[in-house]
């Protein structure tokens, strides 16, 4: 048994892959509580896809993916806000148009400049190709996400619960929303290597969706989300090593199973009551 666990870890690149999955899982899980309870899944998914051109541009020019994603996220958020500012275009329509447009642009850029291999890595993740440098970035991103959520926790609470009160006391809910979108963009940089652009949303939704079936209080939901994400990272990772399946999909499927179990437990609990 011990050997079974240790064997994959004797390879440095596999160790790095597992670490990447855990770091990314933690960052995404903490955010997922807010994405789920603020009803931001559509805009979160949109953001995850729409920053692709920024990532590709950073990739081509050899600059940091970190700044490519963040710069693009600012453009996307501003674009959505600008298009829907007068209410003539509904916000979800604006999100839909911008998200698909930018995603298409990203794919187009990728297809011009890189091989098909790189494209699949960005779309579906490349967890075994994580370098030490990538791992450092992921660590930095996780620390930023945890720090921002901790420091601005009360602002997140009030803008989520009662935006009117928030405006009345001089705190702009829009500002907090844009801040959250920036954090989502950052985690996407991390998550792209682990699960790829296509499945990023799973990490931003499913942990808190599962946790919310079992816990009522926000800190507990966040804690459980992190636990579920870490378990999924580890289980998915070993599954992909031993069963030779795509690691990103294995992580996401594990999360989905955890959600299914949580949902079942909650349903049974309510029945018994």
């Amino acid at each position: 048994m011990v050997e079974w666990i240790i064997e994959p870890l004797s390879y440095a690149f596999i160790m790095r892959g597992l670490a990447a999955a855990i770091l990314t899982g933690i960052a995404c899980a903490v955010l997922s509580a807010f994405v789920v309870w603020r009803g931001m899944s559509f805009v979160g998914d949109a953001m995850a896809h729409a920053i692709l051109p920024g990532i590709v541009l950073a990739y081509i020019t050899g600059t940091s993916l970190f700044f490519g994603a963040l710069g693009m996220a600012v453009i996307v958020a501003a674009g959505i806000g600008w298009l829907s500012r007068r209410g003539e275009i509904k916000e979800d329509t604006a999100i839909g148009v911008i998200f698909t447009g930018f995603f298409a642009l990203g794919i187009l850029m990728l297809s011009r400049v890189t091989s098909y291999q790189d494209l699949t890595h960005i779309l579906f993740g490349d967890i075994l190709g994580v370098s030490t440098g990538d791992l450092t970035i992921m660590l930095v991103i996780m620390v930023i996400v945890l720090a921002v959520i901790f420091v601005f926790y009360k602002e997140l609470l009030v803008t989520s619960f009662d935006p009117s009160h928030s405006i009345a006391i001089g705190l702009s809910p829009e500002l907090v929303r844009y801040g959250l979108l920036m954090l989502i963009a950052l985690t996407v940089v991390s998550a792209i290597q682990v699960v790829g652009v296509v499945l990023v949303l799973a990490l931003l939704i499913t942990p808190a969706a599962a946790a919310s079936q079992l816990a009522r209080r926000l800190p507990a939901i966040i804690g459980l989300s992190v636990l579920f994400a870490v378990i999924s990272a580890i289980v998915g990772f070993y599954a992909s090593y031993y069963a030779n399946v795509a690691s990103g999909s294995a992580v996401v499927l594990t999360l989905t199973v955890i959600f299914g179990i949580s949902f079942g437990v909650n349903t049974l609990k309510n029945r018994i009551k």
């Binding site: 309870w37 603020r38 009360k154 602002e155 609470l157 009030v158 989520s160 619960f161 009662d162 935006p163 009117s164 009160h165 009345a168 006391i169 001089g170 705190l171 919310s212 009522r216 209080r217 926000l218 939901i221």
Partner: peptide
């Protein structure tokens, strides 16, 4: 100035406790 908004302006399903909401009065 303190505002008690209309019920529909508030997301009552958001997971916060009574104490946390009352503390929001201190945020200003």
């Amino acid at each position: 100035i303190s505002l008690v908004p209309q019920r529909s302006q508030v997301d009552w399903s958001f997971p916060v406790s009574v104490r946390e909401v009352v503390m929001m009065g201190r945020y200003a």
